[in-house]
């Protein structure tokens, strides 16, 4: 049985050589990279198309160079196979060697394995290039395993994926000034669509009065801070800090960005706060003041981040759920 299969396959390959111009399956546009030009290679591919997922990224160069354009095998004519084969065909067959297009032809996850092999090959090629420490390497958001699975439509195992990520991270550590274009292109396939630092908010500017403006939010409060060079005067909603915030803690929170960076006596602050309670208002002011301060002195960003004035606290009141007394609380259990 197996033998007859093989002979059939060989015969199909021979047919394919004989019939050059034959109506072919027209692939959709996303497979356009695979050229349909008749190959001059001596090899033949019998691999089925593996681009079944929503994989529209360019294949790795090193792999695709060795690949053959895909052509489907012609229908097998059983009437012909019954006849004794002619001598001419035999000669052609002797000169043929059927090689799978991908070295991972016999693997269950060929795309992944191809990717992995090509990446390791690339790493081998560039291993001698100088590197930077991982901390200094450019920050990259790699595709998550789920995204990769959907892209390749293969059940990739987590551990193997992480092995690949390891290689990718090593490639990313090549010194940014010396990194070959080949590597950059290869890494593109594994990056997320949006990278950290892609979205850059427009830089703040000082208006004609020398004021900078920052907006901060916390809980349900929202605050706008106007910061101008001065000697430490603070007015929030037109009131002094002590009148507006009863607790010393809230006062400190409101000007914490200035206090933590020793700038309390360098600026005058005008704040407008709406919504929420006093804690929310004070902490919304923290963020607003920090953002306004960054317009004056962008170099303070690390210091402000260490002081906890950059990241917005996303916590809010959790919603009440049906069947619950509050967000999480369940009614008391009663036997009957």
């Amino acid at each position: 049985m197996a033998r007859s299969e093989l002979s059939r396959g060989v015969q199909a390959a021979a047919e394919c050589l004989n019939i050059a111009s034959r109506p072919r399956y027209c692939a959709p546009m996303r497979c356009a990279q695979r050229a349909f030009a008749p190959s001059t290679s001596r090899y033949l591919s019998t691999t089925p198309s593996r681009r079944v997922g929503i994989d529209d990224t360019p294949k790795l160069e090193s792999v695709s160079q060795s690949l053959e354009p895909f052509t489907a095998a012609p229908p097998i004519d059983f009437s012909k196979t019954d006849k004794p084969s002619s001598m001419g065909n035999k000669k052609v067959l002797e000169g043929l060697r059927i090689v799978p297009a991908s070295p991972s032809y016999f693997s269950a996850k060929p795309t992944f394995t191809d990717d992995y092999i090509s990446l390791t090959a690339l790493l081998r090629k560039t291993a001698t290039l100088p590197t930077v420490t991982p901390a200094e390497a450019p920050r990259v958001a790699w595709k998550s395993i789920d995204q990769y699975r959907i892209m390749t439509n293969e059940p990739v195992k987590t551990q193997r994926f992480h092995k690949m990520l390891h290689v990718l991270r090593r490639l990313n550590c090549i010194h940014p000034t010396l990194i070959p274009d080949e590597v950059v292109q290869a890494m593109k396939r594994f990056k997320k669509d949006s990278q950290p630092g892609d979205i850059v908010s427009p830089p703040g500017v000082l208006d004609e009065w020398g004021r900078s403006r920052g907006i901060g939010r916390r809980k349900t409060s929202s605050a706008i801070a106007f910061l101008v060079e001065g000697e430490g005067e603070v007015l929030i909603n037109g009131k002094p800090l002590t009148i507006f915030f009863d607790r010393l803690h809230h006062r400190e929170s409101a000007v914490w960005a200035l206090k933590a960076t020793n700038r309390l006596d360098k600026y005058n602050l005008f704040g407008r706060v709406t919504g929420g309670g006093s804690t929310g208002q004070a902490e919304a002011m923290t963020l607003a003041v920090a953002k306004a301060l960054l317009v004056h002195e962008p170099a303070l960003k690390p210091a402000l981040r260490r002081a906890g004035c950059i990241t917005r606290d996303p916590r809010k009141v959790e919603r009440k759920k049906p069947g619950h007394v509050k967000a999480r609380k369940m009614p008391t259990w009663v036997k009957r």
Partner: peptide, 26 residues
Amino acid sequence: DRLVAEKWSLAGMGNVGELERASVRL
């Protein structure tokens, strides 16, 4: 000057009672 400026600002631009509260009582 730094400490004075800090307390002065936190005390609502030099409110005496708040200044005392911020520097001596609390």
